[in-house]
Every structure is written in structure tokens, then in C-alpha cells.
Amino acid sequence: MRRVLTIAQMAFTETVRDKILYSILVFALAMIGSSTILVTLSVGGEGRIVRNLGLACITLFGLFIAVFIGINLVSREIERRTIFSLLSKPVRRAEFLVGKFLGLGLTLAVNLGIMAAGLMVLAWALEDHWTPRILLAIGFTFLELLILTAFAILFSTFSTPTLSAIYTLLVFVIGRLSADLMEFASQFGGPSLKATVNVLYYLLPNLAQFNLSSAVVNRLPLDPWVLTLTAIYGVLYVAGILSVAIAVFQRRDFR
């Protein structure tokens, strides 16, 4: 466990010393802040607009961090051959991957925390009261991003950084739309389309479940039981994808 935490800490240090992260963060905060411009165009519901745009920004920039930094964490080690000196120490390949995942998880948590703080303050300034349910929505966004991080790590164990980024973004798009696609295919699709969508629906994560933005922004009721099940589903999905990534990584030759 100590080695996993050491690798996680180093992965976190690596991302913190990466200038790209700061660019993403500054841009995200600027975007959240600029949502106030739209407020001036609307009559009433200012807080709703800011919360809506803010949560969308957090998801989008969190996705950038998970995908573009996530794929590099493993593939850069292989490309620059820094992995040789690491795996020649008493480090198991599973420890390496889990450590990298935790490190990026921590990076995401810190960044989402900063963006959440920015959004909370902005919403408070406009509405004059705290809206803690935003944190719940961001918590589930974090879980969603952890699933995508696990996918980014899985793809980067066997593919190039560019392809890994494309695959991970595809998982995000399909994962967000899978329920809608299922509905569409069941109503209008032929048997082959239904079968394909069925496979995708059960194979890829149902990421729409993690999107609480609409419920939070519109103050709709949330079922705690559904939220608990969604959280368990997310954790199990991450564990499953990481297990596949470890199985692939164990067999890999580092030439």
C-alpha cells in the first residue's frame, strides 16, 4: 500500500507541476465567472443560469483533465522510458496503475474542489444564500470522471495517447447518450441496430445517471436510494475497468 501511495503522490506532483493543468483551471474559472454575463441578458433565474453553466463547465474541464492528463500519466512513462527505472524496483504493475489512478483522482478532486468553491461563491453572491446541493452534483460528476479516468488508463496501457484520448471521449459521449440511444433504437431501429445499442448499453457505463445538474439546478427531488445505487455502480465500474487495465498491463512487454 505504501508503494501505491508513493506512486499516487508522485502522479499528483507530476500533474501539479504540469502547466497544462493551470491553463485548464484558469480557463474553467474564467468560464464560470463569465456566466454572469448571460445573467444580464435574462430576467429572473440568475442563480439558475450560473449554476447550470457552472456545472457544465466543471464537467467539461474535469473531462479535459481526466482525458488529456490521464492518458499521459501512463503512456508518457512508457514513451520516455521512465517506467524502466520504476518497474525495476519492487513495484507490481497493479500497484503502478492503481497509484497512477489515485494520483489523478486526487488531482481531479483538488481541481473540482477549486471550481466548486468558485461556483458556490458566485451562486451565493447572486442569490444571497448557499446552495449545498451543487456539491452533490459535483460529487457525482467526480465519480463520472473517475470512471473516465479508469478508461483513459485502460486505453493507454495498450494504445497510443491520441487514440486513447479519442476512445475515452467516445466512451463519454456514448455513456452520456446510451439511455437515449436505447430508447431511440427500441422505437425506430431494426434488429441489428437494437442488438448493437443493447451491447453498448450494457458494456459501457451509463454516465447519464451521474448527471444531477438538471435536478439540482431546477430543485427537483432526488431519491437517496437511487443516488446510493448510482454511487455503488460507479465504484464497481471503476474497479472493473481498472482490473481489466491491470490484466492488459501485466502482459505488456516494455521493449
Binding site: T6, T13, E14, R80, R81, L86, S88, P90
Partner: peptide
């Protein structure tokens, strides 16, 4: 591997670390 010291050919290490930080990292591993 706990008892093996390995120098790779044309080694490459984490550029964002200092020499001291890198050795500390290796020692912890």
C-alpha cells in the same frame, strides 16, 4: 527486485524532479 540495482541504457528520469527528490522517490519505492 528489492535487492537489484538497475541502470537502464540511456536512462531517462522525471524531468520535473530534482536529483534529490528522485532518489527519495526511488528509496520510498
Amino acid at each position: 527486485r528489492r535487492h537489484i540495482g538497475f541502470l537502464p541504457e540511456n536512462p531517462s528520469f522525471y524531468e520535473y524532479l530534482t536529483g534529490e527528490e528522485f532518489l527519495t522517490y526511488c528509496g520510498r519505492l
